[in-house]
Write a protein that binds this DNA or RNA. Sequence first.
DNA 1: AGCAAGCGTTCAGATAGCGTTCACGGGCTT
DNA 2: AAGCCCGTGAACGCTATCTGAACGCTTGCT
Lengths: 226, 226
Amino acid sequence: MRVLIVEDDPDLGRQLTEALSQNGYAVDHAADGEEGHFLGDTEPYDAVVLDLGLPKIDGVRVLERWRAAGKDMPVLILTARDRWSEKVAGFDAGADDYLAKPFYTEELLARLRALLRRAAGHASAALQCGDLRVDTRAARASVDGEPIKLTAHEYRVLSYMMHHQGRVVPRTELVEHIYDQDFDRDSNTIEVFVGRLRKKIGSDRILTERGLGYRLIDPAAEDAPS
Amino acid sequence: MRVLIVEDDPDLGRQLTEALSQNGYAVDHAADGEEGHFLGDTEPYDAVVLDLGLPKIDGVRVLERWRAAGKDMPVLILTARDRWSEKVAGFDAGADDYLAKPFYTEELLARLRALLRRAAGHASAALQCGDLRVDTRAARASVDGEPIKLTAHEYRVLSYMMHHQGRVVPRTELVEHIYDQDFDRDSNTIEVFVGRLRKKIGSDRILTERGLGYRLIDPAAEDAPS
DNA sequence: AGCAAGCGTTCAGATAGCGTTCACGGGCTT
DNA sequence: AAGCCCGTGAACGCTATCTGAACGCTTGCT
């Protein structure tokens, strides 16, 4: 899951970036509205944490422009606790959630999880696909109750595929959502991770649609077409 | 839009019911966890406002049970401002948003709108032609509900024809849209792909207009032209 | 009816996308 | 400081898929 943070306060920005990185997100950080707007416009984020008081372009304007351009990723806005009117403006501009500064990092993480799973169309915190489960809150996976030990990137791949189970996920999409901005795309790391995942969760759960991408399925409930 | 309010405080409950009713929602009100759980389980709500401190069954438990039962309507939880851990527990139980008491009714309405807006934005981008469907996002095709396995190029051809169903699509146009650069025109690969597609989706769906191109139709609703 | 051009079908060789393995190196733990 | 774990990228082999050609059928025209 790839997240954009738009926050001008250097300390808070660094703190957030670190917290999200440690929780398995691929994070990009923009320090002003202009950069933030550009990144959100060009890169495929799964969610955005947007401060409203920003240099160059105001946060609400940034959000308005994204929505006007058809960007529909979930956006969580941050603002000072007493700026009540900003909040309403933010919601009207298309924000999905709001958090008042100062806040506990735990709460931001919880809200982010809620936004992400809802964006994927799931209501519950535990993603499930047959007897394969992923608990996004503990960053843990299990098959048939047996916990599976996954490395950080294996977990990212699996988590993303669980959020999009049943549909074909192109490899480029995986790359874009698992790594942040600067990454060398000419590599086969994704194949390697998928291979390792298959070893751990069973090889029949991740289908490869040749030329299209991968597809996560419940092997117990799938038929083989001609 | 039909909303369930689960709130034990009679004053607040009445106030919320009234506010939502006046804003055009159909509102049901439950005064304890048991009644709330029952209603949410049996009636089709578009959203729920759920207080966490409830008699009989706690709000978090109620939410957990709904989610475990597969209920996926958006849920906004209410709790006292200082009960911080409840909040996180609520999110991880499957809440979509949170509001601390006391709050402005305006804000509740704004958040409710945001929840409903996002819940509505889950329309699948599926092309359809008779009982032939192509879900462009999942890269999957099905006839009469039966999934069809297509190769990458077959999928591209079908997808393009679905976008232009009913009209004659010249072979050159298909070539241009399926291959990146200019492509050796002295080949019959398109015919080959069309042939294979016909085998998979039924031969009466792709007509050939001799000398002009192909035309995708719904065989169930077409008459024979001259 | 006969002919020619357009189209369908089949098939084998070529291709490229993918799986697997392995080794290197950086970062974190001990 | 040493060791381990993990991420990365290269090499290599496999096979599903693509492709082009051959051949036969259909259609429409003369």
